[in-house]
């Protein structure tokens, strides 16, 4: 965390509850990086959304002690990830960011992942086609073989995505629907 001092709580959480929340946030900051490579700042901001659901950039600054620039960049990334939505607070120029559902149970989040996989497949196929069409001329160029191998292996991995999404639907789909 950027600061040891606990500033005023934007939602008035009790200090003992705040202490438990802090432990959860620190767990995600450490373990997300270790296991899934997620940036600790993103993990911290996301954990506050997991618990509090609606936050302004000022709330996040107060909770984390991070600078306005860091928070602005983080919430933009969470919006891009389909984890939170951005709304204008009526009558003001301020924004509030909301996590409607946990990403694990969010149709919006899984929809974003599905779209990303589709885009990746399309782009990778186009790249492979370019390399196949110029194979004779390119084959001795530096890096050709490695680039080709990376693309074909990624395409192979992506071909398993529908199976993965079907399992998500079977095991997690009911929670997504219940939360709709």
């Amino acid at each position: 965390m950027a600061s040891n001092k606990i500033p005023q709580d934007p939602h008035g959480f009790d200090p003992e509850i705040r202490q438990i929340e802090q432990e959860i946030v620190e767990f995600f900051a450490e373990k997300s990086l270790e296991f899934i490579g997620r940036h600790p700042i993103i993990a911290i901001v996301m954990a506050y959304f997991d618990i509090r659901r609606s936050l302004t950039q000022q709330d996040l600054q107060d909770l984390t002690g991070f600078s306005a620039g860091t928070i602005s960049k983080s919430v933009r990334q969470l919006v891009d990830m389909n984890v939170v939505t951005k709304e204008t607070i009526p009558g003001t120029h301020k924004h509030i960011y909301r996590m409607e559902k946990l990403p694990f149970t969010s149709a919006r989040y899984f929809g974003g992942t599905g779209k990303l996989v589709e885009e990746m497949e399309k782009e990778l196929k186009e790249m492979k086609e370019t390399l196949d069409n110029h194979a004779e001329e390119m084959k001795d160029l530096k890096g050709y073989r490695k680039i080709y191998t990376t693309i074909t292996q990624l395409l192979e991995l992506i071909s398993t995505a529908p199976m993965f999404m079907a399992l998500i639907d079977e095991e997690v789909g009911k929670f997504i629907k219940e939360n709709k």
């Binding site: 997300s32 490579g37 940036h39 990303l116 110029h134 001329e137 890096g143 680039i147």
Partner: peptide, 25 residues
């Protein structure tokens, strides 16, 4: 041809970077 290959390489890097970014990296 060299330029085409470098363009593919750059596209591949950009694609993987975007995928990582959208997973919170």
């Amino acid at each position: 041809i060299e330029k085409k290959l470098r363009t593919v390489e750059k596209r591949l890097v950009d694609l993987l970077t975007k995928a990582g970014y959208l997973k919170g990296r």
